[in-house]
Write a protein that binds this DNA or RNA. Structure first.
Lengths: 215, 215
DNA sequence: ACCTGAACACCGTTCAAGT
DNA sequence: ACCTGAACACCGTTCAAGT
């Protein structure tokens, strides 16, 4: 039962990443947890990059499992976007991975699903690619920032604490140079990350809606 | 004249990063170029992270130098966004940095300038924060993806070659699972990254325009 | 076929010693 | 005050040797 397998390795890697962040994953720690040496792992995964991709895929597979067939396209897009957001929230390290992975399997799957819904939205052919790209890039941008925010705090710090730190920094900025950041520092403290993320998705969807040709 | 200084170190780091990508920067190579040992560099920069931040700041300072006072807010936002895009295009490694830097000095400066223009656009107070965040996250998302795309190819590969590789991969996908990606593979080959980036900015701006209260 | 663990290469960082 | 370069710690990866 102690037999090594790609699945066990990936699951253990996810556990290490969740517990200690991206710095927590290395082949010695992984080997120790699996009661083997670092070399054994290479029989099952090609290298560290391969392992990180597999770990990201494993975590995102669940997030993308929600079936949205039958939902109106706008709702399907919001559900999909929130699925990615919540997955990054629960596992901040995948935000970094998504930002690096350009056009790799998982990103492509998200892009495909967004694209199908954009099509269902009735967006003219020529504009579908731009619209789907805008949504994907926005989602990946937020994922990357959330990962960066999480990384800037010790692992396990609550979202409220992270926000509090940033809000305090903004409130202290030079009013002459940073009037906007100072003005929104209060809103930042009160705000809901997830709702703001969705507001951004809705903003892009509202922009996409203006593309529809008059019927 | 051989005297070490923070400026010389940062400039040399930028040169290394531009030439060989993120993998090209290490303290031994940097020391060799500066005709000194790795330890000397630490007298002027705190650590590698500090150095990368300084290198990103140096490169982006130029990009953000364009004066947009007097321009209509939409134009100012487009100019600013394109400034970041072009800087990432010329120095792909800053895309990775921007994706990691959350709320650090440079990102904050971009956010501030976007925010001021959003305000000038007449967006209601309560929605300004969401609107500026959406624009920033989109810009950073594209920056991260462009950096990832550049990293996936040997340094110096032209954008057209990168796009060609991705387009070929998309065209080969399973039509049952990836109808959308396959359908846009042709558009991808013909498309202009920069124009698509701007189309995304315009989409968000169009969404923001729907927020304006009826005057 | 799969595992073991020592060894190699590379790198960020420190620090005692110099000027 | 600033530089030198050896040394330390850590890590990804390889590989000869085992079962």
């Amino acid at each position: 039962m102690g037999a090594l397998s790609r699945e066990r390795i990936v699951a253990t890697a996810v556990a290490l990443l969740d517990a200690d962040g991206e710095a927590g994953l290395n082949f010695r720690a992984l080997g120790a947890r699996l009661r083997t040496g670092p070399g054994a792992i290479y029989w099952h995964v090609a290298n560290k990059s391969d392992l990180l991709v597999a770990a990201t895929d494993a975590v995102l597979a669940d997030a993308l499992a929600a079936d949205t067939t039958g939902h109106p396209p706008r709702e399907a897009i919001r559900t999909l976007a929130l699925g990615v957001f919540d997955a990054v929230d629960a596992h901040p390290w995948i935000g970094t991975q998504l930002a690096r992975l350009a056009s790799q399997a998982t990103t492509l799957r998200v892009f495909e699903r967004i694209g199908q819904q954009v099509r269902a939205l009735g967006v003219p052919d020529a504009a579908q690619f731009d619209a789907a790209s805008a949504l994907l890039n926005y989602i990946l941008g937020v994922a990357g920032q959330n990962a960066a925010n999480a990384r800037s705090q010790p692992p396990g710090t609550s979202r409220a604490e992270v926000i509090g730190t940033v809000a305090a920094r903004w409130a202290d900025l030079d009013p002459a140079e940073y009037p906007f950041a100072r003005a929104v520092a209060e809103q930042l403290r009160a705000h809901d990350d997830r709702a703001q993320f969705l507001a951004g998705v809705d903003l892009i969807l509202a922009g996409i809606a203006t593309l529809r040709p008059p019927s």
